[in-house]
Amino acid sequence: MTVTNPYTPFLSKITEVIKHTEIEYTFRMAYQGDVLPGQFFEVSLPKFGEAPISVSGIGDGTVDLTIRKVGKVTNEIFENYVGDSLFLRGPYGNGFDIDNYKGKEILLVAGGTGLSPVKGIVDYFSAHPEDCQGFTLLVGFKSPKDVLFKKDFEKWEKNINVIMTVDTPEDGYCGKCGLVTQYIPEIPINHSDHAVGIVVGPPMMMKCTLTELFNVGFKEENIWISQERKMCCGIGKCGHCKIDDTYICLDGPVFNYTKGKFLKD
C-alpha cells in the first residue's frame, strides 16, 4: 500500500504576471485539472511557508491566483515572475457551482479583494449572458487606485450590468462613491423572490449587504457567501478554520446562507 503525504505540493510554472496595484498582482499558473470559482490553492516557497490563495480565474491549462503583498510568504512570491515556478497544492474546498445560478437573475456583491474568488462567475456570465435572466455586479473598492481587474471591467460592461463604487474618490474620479449597500435598492431586479445573490468581502460589508438583500426581498436559500478569510491548511488537520463542527477549508469556503448564517466566529 502506497501512503502519500497530503501536504506534498507540486511545482507549477508562472506563465504570466498581471499587475493591478502596487501590492496586488495576478499570477497565472500552469494547471491541468478541474477547479471551481471560490476554491483555493496553498501556495508555498521552501523556507518561507505557504499561504491560501483563492482562484481568481480559470483558463485552458491555467489558473489565476491574485495575491496581495502583505506578509512573509507573499512578499517572497512577488520576487518570482514569468518563467519561474511556485509550489501549489489543491484545489481545496467547495466552490461556486455555476449551475446554481443559470436561468436566474443574479446579483453579485463584492468588496475589494473579495472580487477575486467570484471573478470566475463574472467571467462566465459575461461570456454567456444568455445563460441567465440578468446579471448585476456591484463592487466596491477603497479608492480608484485600489481597483482590481480594470481591463476585465471593460469587457464585462459590454454584457452585464456593472456598478463600481469607491469609498474615497481622488482628483479626476468621475464614478460612483459610497458603500455598496446604498446602491442595492436601485438595482433593477424583476423577481427578487427568485433572484440569487452572491456576497463576498469583509465581514461588516457582508453583514450590511445581507441586511439590504433581505430588505429588497431576497430569500435566505437564494444567497451564497464565502468565508474565504478563514481558509487555512486545506485538509482539516490544523483546526484553525473550525467553527463549531464545521471546517471552513473542507465544508466551505462557499456556503449557502442557510448554513453560513450559523458560522459565527
Rank of each mutant, 00 (worst) to 15 (best):
T2R: 12
N5Q: 05
P6S: 04
Y7S: 09
Y7N: 12
P9H: 08
P9D: 12
F10N: 10
S12Y: 06
S12I: 10
S12Q: 05
T15G: 12
E16V: 13
K19L: 11
T26L: 13
M29P: 04
Y31W: 07
D34Q: 13
V35P: 01
P37F: 03
F41Q: 02
G49L: 09
A51G: 06
I53N: 00
S54G: 08
V55R: 01
S56H: 05
G57H: 01
G59T: 08
D60I: 10
V63E: 01
L65Q: 02
T66E: 04
T66Y: 04
G71A: 09
G71Y: 08
G71H: 04
K72P: 04
K72A: 07
V73I: 14
E79A: 12
E79M: 11
V82S: 09
V82Q: 14
V82F: 06
V82N: 07
G83W: 14
G83R: 08
G83Q: 05
D84A: 06
S85Y: 08
L86S: 02
L88D: 00
R89D: 02
G90E: 06
P91G: 09
G93C: 07
F96N: 00
I98M: 11
Y101F: 11
K102W: 04
I106G: 00
A110W: 00
G111T: 07
G111K: 01
G114M: 08
L115E: 01
I121F: 05
V122M: 04
D123P: 04
F125D: 01
P129L: 09
G134V: 11
L137V: 06
L138E: 00
K142F: 10
K142M: 07
S143M: 04
K145L: 07
L148P: 00
L148D: 01
F149K: 02
D152T: 13
E154H: 08
E154R: 10
M164T: 15
V166A: 03
P169N: 13
E170V: 15
G172A: 11
C174H: 13
C174Q: 15
C174S: 14
G175P: 06
G178R: 05
L179G: 01
V180N: 02
T181I: 11
Q182S: 14
Q182E: 15
Y183W: 09
I184C: 00
P185M: 00
I189M: 05
H194Y: 08
H194P: 03
V196C: 12
G201S: 08
M204N: 11
K207I: 15
T209L: 00
T209D: 01
T211K: 12
E212A: 03
E212V: 01
F214H: 14
N215M: 08
V216H: 04
N222G: 10
E228A: 09
E228S: 12
R229D: 05
R229M: 12
C232L: 10
G236C: 06
G236E: 04
K237H: 15
C241H: 02
I243V: 12
T246F: 13
Y247Q: 04
D251V: 04
N256Q: 13
K259A: 08
K259R: 14
G260N: 10
K261H: 13
